Structures are given as C-alpha cells and as structure tokens.
Amino acid sequence: MGRSTNDAQICFRGHDVSLRDVMHFSNDGDINQPFGGKVVVFGGDFRKILPVIPKGSRSEIVNVSLCASNLWSTCKVLKLTKTCAFEPRFVFELAEIKEFSEWILKVGDGVAGDPNDGEVELELSNDILIQHTRDPIASIVDAIYPSLENQLPNPEYLLRERAILAPTHEIVDLVNDYVLSQIDGTEKIYFSSDDVSKNESNVGVRDLYSTEFLNSIKCPGFQITN
C-alpha cells in the first residue's frame, strides 16, 4: 500500500487485468471474473501505511487507496481475532496484555480519546512511560536493556526479547552511539571506499556525487559498491 505513486490502485488493477488475460485461455468465462477467478489475498493493516501522494490532501490519499477501487466491492474482509504479537509467557500477564491489545486497536480504529478529525491527544498509562529524565536516550536504553553489559553474550536478550523503535535514522545513530559507549573494549573505526557504480549507464554521473555527499545519505537499503 505504501508505493510512491500518484495512483496506488494501478498495481492492483494491473494484477487483475493480467490474471484475467491469463485465465481466459482455460475458461472464457474467467475473463469476466475479478482476478480471473483466482483467489487473491491482500495482507497487512491498511491503516498503518497509506498510499504516498506527494503534497496530496487527505481526500486525495483516500481516493487512491484500495478501499476506493472498483475491485473493493468484490473483496471479503477477514479480521484477525488473536493478537499474536502479544502472546503472554505467564498466566498472570493475560489481563494486562488483553487490556493493552484492546487499547492499541482503539488507537488504530481512531476511537481512542475524544472525537477527532485525524488528530487527538491520547492519555498514556504510566507503565509505558519513562518519566523524570534528563537524558531520554540513556533512560530508554536503561529501561529496555537493564544490565546491558552483563547480558551481551545472550542473543535472546539482545535480539529477540526486546527492541527500541526509532522514528528517524538520526535517532537510531544516537541510540547506537550511546549503547556502544556503555560497552567496554577497544574501538575500531572502518572506512569505506564510497563511489557511484562504474557501469556504462552511470558514465558522467560519477563526477556529480562526492564521497561526502554519499555518506550523508541516510535511507534503508542504500548500498554503495566499487
């Protein structure tokens, strides 16, 4: 759903037309069936990632979503009834996790807090807040990873049981820098040789981008090779 396009419905419509074209060779009637009569599952929570419309208004974004497509009337909405992400490890956690799961769903449905038109102030419970702190980065790391240095050899503790979510790559760097500062050991700095790919399609382009500029780019999946 989060494609950078002026019409996110194009990919759904294109898939529909392609399947109709393929399936009509086995049954002429399938050309009139959505997706050629094949079962197609659209997964995910469509409330989380909306179509990307550069400088688009709220109505423009809604109008290019899957729900606004003429294919939507042929879809059947299936809802999950179990929140697998909050599976309790102990029986006494059931009530707490159920309460938190219901609150998360209310936030997603837009019914938490006062009636609103897209913006609302939410009251968070004290058990999910870190209060009275002068250094927010240090406080959240200490809260999520207590006794970090003693737990370094434990992959379950570091990689599976907990994580810190950050809104930007700059915040990720701040968290990582703080965590590294708390670990004893000799620091080693590795320098990369950054350059634009030397294939024929990039002839003349390589001179436009300096190493400093390439290193300033912060985005996921960005890779520079020699």
Rank of each mutant, 00 (worst) to 15 (best):
E121Q: 14
N116Q: 07
E156F: 10
S147N: 15
N154R: 01
E121V: 15
D127C: 13
G185N: 03
Y145C: 04
K188A: 08
I104V: 15
L158Q: 00
N154M: 02
V175A: 02
L158G: 01
L148I: 10
N176G: 12
L165V: 09
N154I: 00
S125Q: 11
P136L: 01
Q182K: 15
L129A: 07
D117T: 12
L180S: 07
S147H: 14
G185E: 01
K106G: 14
D173L: 13
I164H: 12
D109S: 13
E119G: 02
L148R: 05
I189L: 12
G113S: 06
R134T: 15
N116G: 02
V175Q: 06
P146Y: 08
L159N: 11
E119W: 05
A143D: 08
R162F: 04
I171F: 02
G185T: 02
H169P: 01
V111G: 02
A163W: 08
E156N: 14
H169G: 12
T168E: 11
W103P: 01
I137T: 14
P155L: 06
P136W: 05
G113K: 08
P167V: 04
K188V: 10
V120L: 08
I144H: 05
A166S: 13
H169S: 13
Y157E: 00
K106P: 02
V120K: 08
